[in-house]
């Protein structure tokens, strides 16, 4: 092991790359290689970001985005888990519905957005509907497969032990489906955030997406604000993705997929 592979060096290298990028950004705009009317300087953006952090407008926008995202996710995911479980437990229903769901999954969710905008306008309902609709299909499929993925040995054991009904569901089906659902939820959370932002940008519902749009429309002087909002959106993405990944690890530490991951990391 050389010095290059020590933990401190690795962290240092990462910090250095980030710092170099920010410095490069600042240099390019200071030297006016970047057109300042379309690309603000790093310091201006950061200063604006700092100002925004203290303003109520930003937190209101964040709250609107989080509300639309959270409600949509809650509705879409609960429906998907219930429907997926029911479909997964019945072979006939599963075989009948799979072609429809697999087809609908390939349809770009965004196709439904104009309809939602006409029906609900620039409201919270519109956002919630789009997010719920968008996360429903993939998670339903994931749940169906999870419910059906019970290990044959476990299934046979359950049969020998005459486990039935709710007990079988809680002790056999749910544990085997949980990792599938968790993966589906993690993906759904990220997709949901993207859809929320798109709904705000195109549908004009209040939130971070709309803030980005209005600051762009306000002209070049507000440009730092645009980039500040984009940065905040990125931070929201980081938070959502890592929170769900962390939860998945904590809640499913007993499952072999996580054990393997832990072993690999060690």
């Amino acid at each position: 092991m050389t010095i290059v592979d020590t933990g401190w060096f690795r962290i240092g290298a990462r910090v250095l790359v980030v710092a170099a990028l920010l410095a490069g950004w600042q240099y390019l705009s200071a030297a006016e290689i970047l057109d300042t009317t379309s690309f603000p300087s790093m310091t201006a953006t950061m200063a604006e970001a700092g100002r925004q952090l203290q303003s109520a407008d930003l937190w209101l926008a964040v709250w609107e985005t989080v509300r639309g995202w959270g409600l949509g996710l809650l509705i879409g995911c609960s429906l998907a888990i219930v429907v997926g479980t029911l479909l997964g437990l019945n072979r006939f229903a599963y075989l009948s519905v799979i072609p429809v769901i697999e087809f609908l999954k390939t349809v770009p969710v965004i196709a439904i957005l104009p309809l939602a905008i006409v029906v609900w306008g620039a409201t919270l309902d519109m956002k919630v509907f789009l997010v719920a609709f968008g996360v429903f299909w993939p998670l339903t499929i994931q749940t169906i497969y999870g419910v059906r993925a019970v290990d044959p040995v476990v299934r046979d054991t359950a049969a020998v032990l005459r486990l039935r009904g709710l007990r079988k569901f809680l002790n056999v089906t749910l544990p085997s489906a949980a990792p599938f659902i968790a993966t589906g939820l993690r993906v759904a959370a990220a997709v949901g955030l993207i859809l929320t932002i798109i709904a705000e940008l195109i549908g004009g519902a209040p939130g971070l997406g709309l803030s980005i749009l209005t600051s762009v429309n306000a002209g070049p002087s507000r440009l730092p604000a645009t980039y500040a909002f984009i940065l905040f959106t990125g931070v929201a993405g980081v938070l959502v993705t890592s929170a769900f990944a962390y939860l998945e690890q904590r809640l499913l530490h007993w499952h072999e997929s996580q054990r393997n991951a832990a072993a690999k990391a060690a």
Binding site: L16, V17, I194, I197, I198, L201, G234, G237, V238
Partner: peptide
Amino acid sequence: AVSPVLYFIYVIPTAALLP
């Protein structure tokens, strides 16, 4: 070394970059 930067760009909902 570049993974944090890549990761950050990856998680920004690209639609936000559109304007």
